[in-house]
Computed example of a mutant assay.
Amino acid sequence: MEPKFGANGTAITEFVLLGLVETPGLRPVIFVIFLFAYLVTVGGNLSILTAILVEPKLHTPMYFFLGNLSVLDIGCITVTVPSMLGRLLSHRRAVPYGACLTQLFFFHQLAGVDCFLLTAMAYDRFLAICRPLTYSTRMSQTVQRILVAVSWACAFTNALTHTVAISTLNFCGPNVINHFYCDLPQLFQLSCSSTQLNELLLFGLGILMAGAPVILIVTSYIHVAVAVLRIRSAEGRKKAFSTCGSHLTVVGIFYGTGVFSYMRLGSVEASDKDKGIGILNTVISPMLNPVIYSLRNPDVQGALQRVFTGKRALA
């Protein structure tokens, strides 16, 4: 994918990512912190994934979606952090034009799947609590696989659309991005051609990719809350709210940071707030997800304990 030439006959062939800090003395500290965060995130999500695969008790739709979420979390942090660590080691902050757009594509692909997967998880909780008699047929293995496949297909379409659209823009300087990875808002600011159509496209697809899922999630949980409050057993209500609470926490972090990142494109300057939101999106959220789900879930805790101790579940 070649950069477009500007009116002055020159074109940007690479972007310069300033990273998180510009002080040389702080770079080793940042490297250690983010390497640790990366290893913890990959290790935590692989542990959850292993527990789901080896524990028969967790072979249910809810944990099938949770396993897919763990794969996405590993992918999301891998798209951004290793390249940042490489630049810190090499002291080279330049990123080729094609590599920048490739990173953008994969980031939006994985984030898009996350949108739909979190919606599928909310729908699963709705069926399990509000429609228990028809749950096994409405959430069969075929339905689960279709939901995941459609999520990947829709996210691919969204990511490809944005990548192709931004490749039509002219970049003729400057080429400095005040961030640690390539993303749409920062690239819009560097374009020397009009980004109005790109911004409208981002807003329109954002409504479909985020707005519609949020409405479905909220609707599902309104029905879930009504159904749970009707449960007479205090223990039953506690278990239902515990399971749903973990998912709602993840949804809140994911959508909250996403809205802040992409719905304020009128801001011309790239601030440190963007970097902070980027860290939440790509590092903190994937790292917290295994903790959120395992701390509040005795089934996952038991499975993880058996994975680490080598013990098998009792029949």
Rank of each mutant, 00 (worst) to 15 (best):
P3M: 04
P3I: 04
T10C: 01
E14Q: 14
V16L: 05
L20W: 09
L20P: 02
V21Q: 10
P28A: 10
V29A: 04
I30G: 02
F31M: 05
F36S: 12
A37K: 03
Y38I: 05
L39A: 15
L39I: 12
V42D: 09
S47L: 15
I48G: 00
T50G: 04
T50L: 09
I52H: 11
L53E: 11
P56T: 03
P56E: 06
K57Q: 07
L58T: 08
P61L: 01
Y63C: 04
F65N: 13
G67S: 05
N68Y: 14
L69A: 06
L69M: 13
D73T: 06
D73H: 13
I74N: 06
C76F: 09
V79H: 00
V81T: 12
V81Q: 07
V81P: 10
P82F: 11
M84P: 00
L89C: 08
A94D: 09
P96F: 00
C100N: 06
C100K: 01
L101C: 03
T102K: 03
L104G: 00
F106T: 00
F107Q: 01
H108F: 14
L110T: 00
L110C: 02
L110N: 00
L117Q: 05
L117T: 10
L118Q: 08
A120E: 03
Y123R: 14
D124C: 15
D124I: 04
F126I: 07
L127H: 04
R131N: 12
L133H: 13
L133K: 13
S140I: 01
Q141M: 09
T142Y: 00
T142N: 02
I146S: 02
A149T: 15
S151V: 03
W152M: 09
A159S: 13
T163Y: 00
V164R: 02
V164T: 06
S167G: 05
N170I: 03
N170T: 13
H179S: 15
C182T: 01
L184Y: 05
Q189E: 09
L190D: 01
S191A: 15
C192S: 11
C192V: 06
S193C: 05
S194I: 01
S194C: 05
S194F: 07
E199D: 11
G204W: 05
I207F: 04
L208V: 14
A210V: 12
G211V: 10
G211T: 10
A212H: 09
A212V: 15
V214F: 04
I215V: 15
I217K: 06
I217H: 10
V226Y: 10
V226N: 06
V228M: 11
I231D: 08
S233Y: 08
A234D: 12
G236K: 13
G245I: 11
L248S: 03
L248R: 13
V251Q: 02
I253A: 03
F254V: 09
G256E: 10
G256R: 03
G258N: 12
V259R: 02
F260S: 07
M263F: 14
L265V: 14
S267M: 13
E269G: 02
E269D: 10
K273G: 10
G278E: 08
G278Y: 10
G278T: 11
I279G: 08
L280I: 15
N281W: 11
I284G: 08
M287E: 07
N289S: 07
P290F: 02
V291R: 05
I292K: 03
L295V: 14
N297I: 08
P298S: 15
D299R: 13
Q301H: 07
G302T: 09
V307F: 12
G310Y: 08
G310F: 09
K311G: 03
K311T: 11
R312Y: 12
A315M: 14
